[in-house]
Amino acid sequence: MKRVRIGVVGRMIGVLIVLGIAVFPIYWMFTTALTSDADLFAPEPRWFPDFGQFYVFVDALAEGPTLTWLANSTIVAIGTTVFSIGLGIPLAYALSRFSFKGKVAVGLLLLMTQMLPEALMVVPLFSLYRRFELLDSLAGLILANTAFVLPIVALVLKGAIDGIPKELEEAGRVDGARPLAVLLRINVPIILPSIAAAAVIAFFHAWNEYVFAVTFIFNKSLQPASVGLAGFIGEQGTAIQTIMAVAFMFTLPAVAFYLFAQKYVVSGMTAGAVKG
């Protein structure tokens, strides 16, 4: 009995250390945002947030381009989510329920996309976009992001459809429904949790995306927050508190949603890698 107790205490200490390492940088972001100049440059660091400084967050939103950035990021993220789910559901259904010529080729194509760095594809996409006047537009970002997140979304959804017993569909087909109707009426309602998880993946893939946004967008009023935030690095004009406040507001939704969808995201991503 005594040995077990020591085991639990040791485990708790280990867990607390790990959690400290995991959470501290985000805590430090928040604390730095709420630290006065005097405390910031003092010889001893201030370890706790000074809530008297809360106006930093308010000012960061009210002044400067923060709201525009977050709005642009939101538009790009929503567009990417809608596109990738809309294209991903039929793709996942085809891969899950049918066997057809070229299925292996499609699988290979999806695997291939996992190996292509955005930084490599940015050059040919740039020339494509110049031809079709998609530079300097949020639509262009949505299209590029969709291409990169669509395979992951499709694999998450395929895993979910794989899990639906075929008898359920067959029952639905008795009344002679067409394949699309079967998919929409029977499969989609069942896999809604996985669709939500795939939506979270797609949304924050686009929310976090940087390479395309920094290369394709020149007009400052169209910049998403990732580019705006990155612009703070090496720039001297903005107070570190403001930078950290904006970074924290940019981080918070991503962390909150991932905590909510974590289970599905992880199982989807590993399933995708297995099947790849």
Partner: peptide, 17 residues
């Protein structure tokens, strides 16, 4: 749940902090 925070945080924010 808390242990997943670093993975969920956007790369840009991680680079900044």
């Amino acid at each position: 749940a808390l242990v997943t925070v670093p993975w969920a945080a956007p790369g840009i924010a991680t680079a900044l902090i």
